[in-house]
Design a protein around this nucleic acid. Structure first.
Lengths: 211, 211, 211, 211
DNA sequence: TATGAATGAGCTTTCATTCAT
DNA sequence: AATGAATGAAAGCTCATTCAT
């Protein structure tokens, strides 16, 4: 019955939960499903979590925390605000495309009105603040248009990335999600409008350190 | 056969459902809650809907259909692709900010993995196609940058609008959502990058026919 | 919508009920099924019957009453107790094989513990008394063995006929049920034991007035 | 894994079910009634049975199986086909009069058209076949009249026994049912007709080992 | 710690019955 | 008399949670 090298039963349960929630959705998933998927008894779950909701809330907190930490690192590795945006986009898309089940969870269950309130709070807010800092820096240095409300910019960029992930999840074809990091950043920075000069794509291409 | 001003009992139930679903979420809402909110008996619901799921699916279909129809009208009233995008943004934000409960439903319950599959199909796809047509037109006339993948553009624009609505819903302050239509379209068209010349904002400002 | 020549709506409903009850069973049948089968509105049923149970009780009473009346006539047409038994067997099997749906109802739903008590009372008791009279007469004239308890004889004969009907209903092949009247009466009168003399079959054969 | 004297929780539930079904009938009985009567929680029932129907079907199968097994033993203990019939009659009546509640169930609920089909199949068929074998043997040895169709004989005998039980159940007086085994077999073998010689009763009286 | 049998509250859905028309 | 939309009580079943082992 014992899986892996054991040891971290809590993580074991969370892994089982991701798989089950992603497949059946939070409400439709039974606690016993999670137990089964995690290879533990039903009762064991309650030694590590207060109740069913605590599982998904912990799950989101855990994943977001790690995601946020790595996002910060990525940003620090980039110099200009523009490169920082690209780094964030890359990280955002890479992280979610690496774990399709986590992605499904985040694009669907996380939106639950009930959960949303109890959750979006801390970690998610931090992520938005991270983005906000980058925009602020860009507007401060004159790289970004200063007349645009910062929250609008943040929400638009996040929303664009978010929708890319959602569409990727719903799509029957399994294209490479990370490849969209550059063009979406390019669009976001350069705008949709055609311009007479200064092709925006070039610049970003130069910064393409991941090919 | 015609009774009172009947015939709208179905609508009555749908209205009750919107209110209840928006407040408690689909799974947490009891059918009897909906009945209570609609002012009918529990059993009456089943004279108009097959089961609980049929209620929310019908709800989404109904609302999306009307939204889509009006979106098409708005677009036809606009000349250039750029003005069409603005029209869509205005309509999108206006429609949802007019009915906060509907907005909540769309930003939360609609994402349910289970419902998503059963639903996102027809009407939602049409909405994306509508957007896609506008982008295509713009790229054809040379107004929009042609090198950007159309689906990426569509998803980014939709995602931006979508996130604006979500943030608005989650925000404690009740700011005017429609006011964001212009700046978000401006950002989307002009890009975040600061530009030496030709300020994009001007143009859009001129097209401001709703002020 | 109007069936037949109308007129007896009560009978119409009872006919619908027989069909529906025979097919789905009393508890599984919906009142609206009966209404549908009878070609009347749900509410109309309650103009003729107090409630669902009243329908089946009335049904049994009606059918049993007619059956009983005809059984009495048949008996009067027969001279000897032995011919009377044969007449009863013939009538019993003929009546039920003529209306398969009624037969199904009687062999299944009538046994309901709940209904049984409320019902078996009057008409069914009369039927047993009719049989009992015949046995009594036979024992009185010396035609039948007097040492056998009358109720045992009555129950055995009725039970045999009853089981023939049940088996006929459950059988996939539609053999002629009435043809069993003579042999079953022969068995009942002559016994299963082989006898050295006086073959019993002959006598009954002679009495075959219906051939 | 073995707990208390457990393992009989299933039997506990079946016992509760017999009591409740016998009193209220299958359809009228609530699952919670059964749970209450069995001294378990409602939900516990579903750990041992798929659903309500599964309870009664299992019940019939269990009882019939045991009844059938014992019937076979009884038969093997008897020499002649005539004594075998008597043994079967005794066993049939004894078994059902020992458990009045089981008897009620068998004489009423078992006839349900809906259940009948799903059930009468295996065990009940075996019982009829057992009887059929005895008749066949008797007809083969010349003890029984060979011109009577075997199925008719089987059905008549079973029907007689069956009706004795039904009447016993419906009767307000609690007479001894097993005492009827001899006279009913006597009637069946010797026939109702009065005979000049060779009284049939004698023989059977000799075999009366139970007084 | 870990187990999983047992619990029982709670929900969706059905359907007999009513009653305004 | 006839209709059938509306009612709402009732019940089967599920499943999160507990707790004796």
């Amino acid at each position: 019955m014992a899986r892996k090298p054991e040891g971290d039963k809590r993580r074991q349960i969370l892994e089982g939960a991701v798989a089950v929630f992603a497949q059946k959705g939070y409400f439709t998933a039974r606690v016993s499903d999670i137990a089964g998927s995690a290879g533990v008894a039903d009762g064991t779950i309650y030694l590590y979590f207060k109740n069913k909701e605590d599982i998904i809330v912990s799950l989101f907190a855990d994943v977001l925390e790690r995601h946020l930490a790595r996002a910060k690192e990525e940003i620090e590795g980039a110099r200009t605000p523009r490169r920082k945006l690209l780094a964030i986009a890359r990280h955002h898309l890479a992280a979610l495309s690496e774990r399709r089940d986590v992605a499904i969870l985040f694009q669907t269950e996380l939106r639950q009105s009930t959960l949303m309130s109890r959750l979006s709070s801390k970690e998610l807010r931090s992520y938005f603040e991270l983005l906000s800092k980058v925009i602020e820096e860009g507007q401060g240095t004159g790289a970004f248009r200063p007349e645009l409300p910062r929250s609008l910019v943040v929400q638009s960029f996040f929303g664009a990335l978010d929708e890319l992930v959602t569409s990727w999840i719903l799509s029957p074809t399994h294209y490479n999600l990370v490849d969209l990091a550059e063009p979406v950043t390019d669009l976001f920075l350069g705008g949709l409008d055609a311009r007479p000069k200064r092709p925006r794509t070039k610049r970003l291409a130069k910064s393409g350190d991941r090919k």
